[in-house]
Computed example of a mutant assay.
Amino acid sequence: MIARLLPHAGRGWLYATALFALMSLASAQGIARPKLKIDDIPRETQAGEGPGRYVPPVPARKNLPTLWLIGDSTVRNGSKGDNGPEGQWGWGAPITAYFDLKKINVVNRALGGTSSRSFYHDRWEDVRKRIKEGDIVMMQFGANDHGGAKGKGALDGVGNETEMNGDEEVHSFGWYLRRYVEDTRTQGGKPVVCSLTPRKSWAADGRFRRGGGHAEWAWQAAKETNAAFVPLNEIIARRYEKLRERKVDALYVPSPAETLHTGWDGAVVNAECVIAGLKALDEDPLADFYSKRAGAIRAWKQR
């Protein structure tokens, strides 16, 4: 419309300027083009074959290294890993597209409703025994780590204190993360700790509220074990502050009431934040396995 008001000779400049602005915006947000679609994600990376409500996926090519993802519904949503009833998606599905599956397997073993504690007791052993030399295990917990010993979550903090829940000895959030890290290394794998995705919440000054305790405790556990750490909570919060509240509302499903689970577009944003965080590591264990799409994502820069 504006172009019609300009002399014909000036239209090329206008289009070039507009295109540059759009490219700059995409680059600033780390958006990979063309737009990622649900059908672009191989089902074998999210769910296995067989009867039952939940069939865990396994590596498609045994001769390749594997990226194992463990966590809760913000990493993998739906019993079949194909989203929940509200169209909610975890970032563990779209992140598959940022890796070259001819070089590495991606296996999303995250499961909705789990905490660092419940996953450790119910799901971890089957993952642990499959980890081989050269594999990477990326973990993100915290959304369900509440309720203390009598609930299903871990104790607060990173210490070695324990409480009993019947016959079960319950440990701190940091303790469980350290065990994942140590077990991964014992199997010859490389651990990567991510802080949890933030719940949607805005402060009066327009800042997006961070994750607080569990985000901090994930960092402390990674530091104590000298494990790679992706400050995902902070990276996502900063991305959301650039997008502003109206656009961020649309990333959560159902919008605007939902505060934890994203839809597909939100999962893609969060997956790109994970890639940006990985690229910012001093030693990125996944640097040799990125796909062409990942090339559009720049390393996150801490202020």
Rank of each mutant, 00 (worst) to 15 (best):
L281F: 02
P85D: 05
A222W: 00
Q140R: 15
D265W: 03
N270W: 03
A204W: 02
A218H: 12
D265S: 01
G10K: 11
A299N: 14
L111D: 02
I95C: 09
V192F: 00
V58Q: 14
D282F: 04
K132S: 11
G71Q: 09
A47H: 14
L6M: 13
V127G: 13
A26H: 15
E44V: 06
E216L: 12
G166F: 04
N226E: 08
T186G: 05
G153A: 08
K132V: 06
K129I: 11
D39K: 06
F99R: 10
G30E: 13
E245V: 02
P57C: 12
A271T: 01
T184H: 04
R179N: 13
M138F: 04
Q29M: 14
A21R: 15
A154E: 07
R178Y: 00
K223H: 06
G157R: 07
W13E: 15
R128L: 13
K279A: 06
R185A: 00
E258L: 08
K292M: 12
A204I: 01
K102H: 05
G92M: 03
A287M: 15
G157T: 04
K150I: 13
A21Y: 15
W175G: 00
A143N: 14
K200Q: 07
T259R: 09
A32F: 04
D145E: 12
D167R: 05
E133R: 12
I95S: 01
L177M: 07
T66G: 05
A97Q: 05
R179V: 07
A222D: 00
G48S: 10
G52S: 05
A143Y: 05
A149T: 10
A26D: 15
G92L: 10
V170Q: 04
V106E: 07
F141W: 04
L6C: 12
Y290S: 11
S172E: 02
A271D: 03
D284Y: 13
D122I: 12
A16M: 14
L286E: 08
F229V: 00
H8M: 10
A60D: 02
P94F: 02
W68E: 10
W219N: 09
A215Y: 08
F99D: 13
I41Y: 07
P65F: 06
Y176C: 04
V269I: 10
A16F: 11
R199Y: 03
Q187D: 01
K190Y: 00
A110D: 05
D288W: 14
D39C: 08
S24F: 15
R53F: 07
L36C: 07
K242W: 04
R179F: 02
E163M: 06
T184I: 05
E241R: 10
P285M: 15
A93P: 02
E49T: 02
Y15K: 08
D126M: 15
A276S: 13
E86M: 03
L155P: 01
L64E: 08
G78E: 01
L251W: 00
G188T: 02
I41M: 05
A149R: 10
P94I: 02
D282M: 10
F208G: 12
A299I: 15
R207A: 13
I70Y: 03
M1D: 11
M23D: 15
A218D: 12
R109P: 00
L36D: 08
G50K: 01
F208P: 04
I95W: 03
P85N: 04
N160D: 12
A228C: 10
A237E: 05
L5G: 14
S172A: 08
R61W: 12
Y120V: 09
E234H: 12
